[in-house]
Computed example of a mutant assay.
Amino acid sequence: MYLRAVHAEAQIAVLQQLIRDNPLGILTTAIKSPLYPLIQSSHIPFVLDVPETTDGSLSNGVLRGHMAKQNPQAKALMEALAAQQEQGNASLELSDEVLVLFNGPHHHYVTPKFYTETKPATGKVVPTWNYAAAQAYGKIRVYCDSKSEETTTFLQKQIEELSNQSETSIMKYSSPWQVSDAPVSYVDLLKKNIIGIEITIDRLQGKFKMSQEMGQGDREGVIKGFEDLGTDVGKGIADMVKERGDLKDNK
């Protein structure tokens, strides 16, 4: 990701909130395999844990998710773990780094017509695209042995907390659906067909590309242009352009 200074977000807490608000991440791996593609990606909803640190600083956090065992990417992960364990390494953590990309709720094409200051003055404007995103890099742990208590415990915790997060934070239900509402035998069967993944975030980076590079007059034109679209996405972009522009001006 190109992190131009005017767009880059350096505050870890802000990027963590973007992840919490938009938990559907894109997991990308590059695992050498004789059977599966080198580079694979999957959309996976994540739970973000932020453990306390001994020095009181804010940790980057830990991402937890799960995938179907039939997913070719999951198969490549399991294959890599088996090969590692055959070499005498009992760790569940793979040596290769992985990437998880999270996108903000709104993105949109920006027409040069919105630049009401620069376009009529010089014409030196071109189209672009506004968006927000965070990228998390780290090592991945793979929980795939359905006979292991460690895997069973991880998956139970994962599906319960992910369901609760989605039911309360996304759906806003005061009486959320719970995993315990489904038959235990049914849930146990489903757990045998998924793997758990856990990524300790080593690097967390992100950006809010929301017209901060433009002058105030052009930003006002962008805000009005998106508001005039009369759509939820347009309003979302307009609000973010104003918020990010104000932050830039107040620095």
Rank of each mutant, 00 (worst) to 15 (best):
V98K: 00
L35H: 15
G221Y: 08
E160S: 12
F154W: 04
F226L: 04
Y109V: 04
T28I: 10
T54R: 12
P112R: 10
S91F: 10
M1Q: 07
K113S: 13
F226W: 03
I237P: 01
Q17N: 14
Q84L: 04
V222Q: 01
M240S: 06
K147E: 14
E9M: 12
P72H: 08
A90C: 05
S146Q: 15
G88N: 03
T151F: 06
T29H: 05
Q11C: 03
T116Q: 07
M214S: 12
I44A: 09
S57Y: 11
L204S: 02
Q156C: 06
Q212P: 01
T152H: 10
A5T: 12
V184N: 07
A121P: 05
C144N: 15
Y109F: 13
N164T: 14
P37E: 13
I26C: 02
G217K: 08
D188S: 11
V98E: 05
V6R: 02
D188C: 09
Q16E: 06
N89Y: 07
N89W: 06
R64S: 09
L247W: 06
G123M: 03
E149Y: 05
I199E: 07
Q216S: 10
T111F: 07
K242R: 13
G221Q: 01
K157Y: 08
I197W: 00
R219C: 08
